[in-house]
């Protein structure tokens, strides 16, 4: 009987939806880490921000999420740009001692995360929000799929594909990959590293904000919803190799599969055990931080 569960289209669909969501959340973190070596633990809060913006767009302005996500994505991009400009000075100061900076930057982003989460909680109260959108059900054989989850899957997949193609074919995308590979070498051959950093930030913030819109369509959320997404993003990035975007997509789907099938086969109790188990195991298996062991994407 559990074999039926295992082979069901329902589970597969669920795994794909979850995996694609993780993919779009993780790609931003991967880009920022890959190019700037900054582990942004506040990344999940961008997702949270996107969720709240989508909620307010719908409830206050009447704009449906599939429309507002363009604006929110753009807004995220602009915020990323502004933050990059203001952070640039700090990076210059911080570049004095790279080793100490990395551990400190984590605490810094942590502080930012606490600040952001609680500021939102202050204005919007900590109660979870949710809304109904596209919740009509479509059936494909035995598999029941709600409209919003289909929309999420399609949007996430399209965004990731877009970023992927950009990295492959556009000149700035190539420059980005060069910087991820070796910042010094990229600089020597004339790559405008500052432009690449800016682009990573912009893409990262935009994709995370869009992910937030998608999350808001499917689940309820609170100011503190970002954190589990940060963790998932980390797992994805580490599994696929920090800076390795393509492998990150695969890792995200893998994580979605583990989580979905894991819960189905055991119970909800074990979901977090699985998630964090994978997390810890991966870090322990790759103590060198993975950069040296990347597979070419």
């Amino acid at each position: 009987m559990w074999l039926d569960t295992l082979l069901s289209g329902q589970l597969l669909f669920s795994a794909l939806v979850t995996g694609s969501l993780y993919a779009i959340v993780a790609v931003g973190l991967n880009l920022v880490y890959g190019t700037m070596r900054l582990l942004n633990v506040a990344h999940g809060d961008l997702v949270m921000g996107g969720a709240y913006l989508a909620y307010w767009s719908l409830t206050l302005l009447g704009v449906p999420p599939l429309l507002s996500l363009w604006m929110i994505g753009l807004g995220g991009a602009l915020i990323g740009l502004a933050l990059y400009r203001s952070m640039f000075r700090r990076l210059l100061i911080a570049s004095a001692d790279p080793g100490r900076v990395e551990a400190n930057s984590l605490l810094l982003f942590f502080g930012i995360s606490i600040l952001v989460q609680n500021t939102i909680a202050w204005f919007a109260t900590p109660t979870p929000r949710a809304y109904l959108y596209l919740d009509d059900v479509y059936k494909l054989g035995d598999t029941a799929m709600t409209g919003n989850r289909i929309a999420s899957l399609v949007t996430a997949a399209a965004t990731c594909a877009g970023i992927w193609l950009y990295l492959r074919h556009h000149v700035v995308g190539l420059a980005l990959r060069a910087v991820i590979d070796s910042p010094l070498a990229a600089r020597i051959v004339g790559v405008n590293v500052e432009q690449v950093h800016r682009t990573s930030f912009v893409l990262g913030f935009a994709s995370a904000s869009v992910a937030g819109v998608l999350v808001s369509m499917m689940e309820q959320f609170s100011p503190f919803v970002g954190f589990p997404f940060s963790i998932a993003a980390f797992i994805v990035c580490i599994l696929g190799g920090l800076g390795n975007i393509g492998a990150g997509f695969v890792a995200a789907l893998f994580l979605g599969v583990i989580e979905t099938y894991g819960i189905a086969l055991t119970s909800l109790n074990w979901r977090s055990v699985l998630l964090y188990g994978v997390f810890v195991a991966t870090l322990l298996a790759f103590p060198q931080g993975l950069f040296g062991r990347r597979v070419r994407s």
Binding site: L39, V41, E102, Y276, L283, P287
Partner: peptide, 17 residues
């Protein structure tokens, strides 16, 4: 054996685990 920021998030993950 895990260093820097990875150690930080590893300890967090371990506690949650």
């Amino acid at each position: 054996r895990v260093r820097g920021p990875y150690f930080v998030i590893l300890t967090f993950g371990l506690a949650e685990l």
